[in-house]
Computed example of a mutant assay.
Amino acid sequence: MIESSTKGVFAPETLQDYGADPVAVRESDKYVSEYIRGFVDKWDELIDWNSRAESEGRFFIDVLKARGKETVLDVATGTGFHSVQLLKAGFSVFSADGSAEMLAKAFDNGMRHDVVLKTIHADWRWLNKDVHGKFDAIICLGNSFTHLFEEADRRRALAEFYAALKHDGILIIDQRNYDSILDHGFSTQHKYYYCGDQVVAEPVHVDEGLARFEYRFPDGSKHNLNMFPLRKNYVRGLLEDAGFRKIKTYGDFQDEAEEANPDFFVHVAEKNYV
């Protein structure tokens, strides 16, 4: 189940390919080919680990420790930021992702930070086929849930998350504030999430079924991601339908009342009914 290393999984570099009509590409499986090596290698310029660590502070660590959680499954590891942060904070972490390119980068980043990531290449829709055992907590961060375009896929993924949790486990899942983008247009300071000040990340197309973001890097390169614009209350409803209770939503790591128009929402959903 556990790969100690993901070296050697890189395929020859390719270009992102959306065909003749990029805004017509609305498929859950597309993200795998979007994260080409050239994009993955630049992803940390967008995140800026140091600034990200400073901006979010101990939020996730404190949420997990306050509930006595120890084992964490990071199902959207990306380049490894949160897996590394939680490992250093003393949690037992397993790191999963559907992109082999991302997992390889995450493993290398872990080595640079003196930790060894336990990586698992897994699709959320069949998570428990590749990930065995039960966890105290699952985190799905980095706006990753937005890669699922079909509602059936979203419901199946949440069911898989629910099944992989212990009876009193919690799910932490985040998303962009797509309500604001859809209703009022895009405006963000990227104070907390995408902190790289040399990278421009903004939508080039938005409708109720697609948010197509373009990422422009200092070297002049451009990459794109097609994502489904999830509304906040819709996600909360999906969590409830999946069986989660006591769902608390934060806006940019603050109680919702304290942040009028956050860039991101963070949902903390508990499996325990009590």
Rank of each mutant, 00 (worst) to 15 (best):
V199D: 08
E34A: 12
Y194W: 11
N272C: 09
H147F: 14
D41F: 04
F264C: 05
M1W: 08
Y194F: 15
Q175I: 15
H121C: 03
R67M: 13
P218T: 09
E56I: 00
E70V: 10
I47L: 13
R112N: 04
E56P: 00
F186R: 03
A152F: 04
I120F: 07
V9G: 00
A257M: 09
F91Q: 06
M1H: 08
Y31P: 01
R37C: 05
D41S: 06
I172G: 13
T119A: 07
G220S: 13
A260D: 12
V9E: 00
K191P: 01
Y178E: 06
R67P: 11
K134E: 07
D136T: 02
D108H: 03
A163R: 11
T249S: 08
N143M: 15
I181Q: 11
A66M: 06
A53L: 07
V131G: 02
L171P: 11
D136I: 06
R112T: 02
E202W: 15
R58W: 04
H121K: 15
L165I: 12
S144A: 07
D168W: 05
C195D: 00
G220Y: 09
Q85S: 07
S92G: 06
A164G: 10
I170R: 02
F107H: 08
R156N: 12
E214A: 12
D123T: 10
S33C: 13
K88R: 09
H184E: 13
K248P: 08
N233I: 10
D174P: 03
N233E: 13
G110F: 02
L225C: 07
R155S: 12
Y250V: 04
I139P: 11
S221Y: 07
F265N: 04
F264T: 00
V9C: 01
S187H: 14
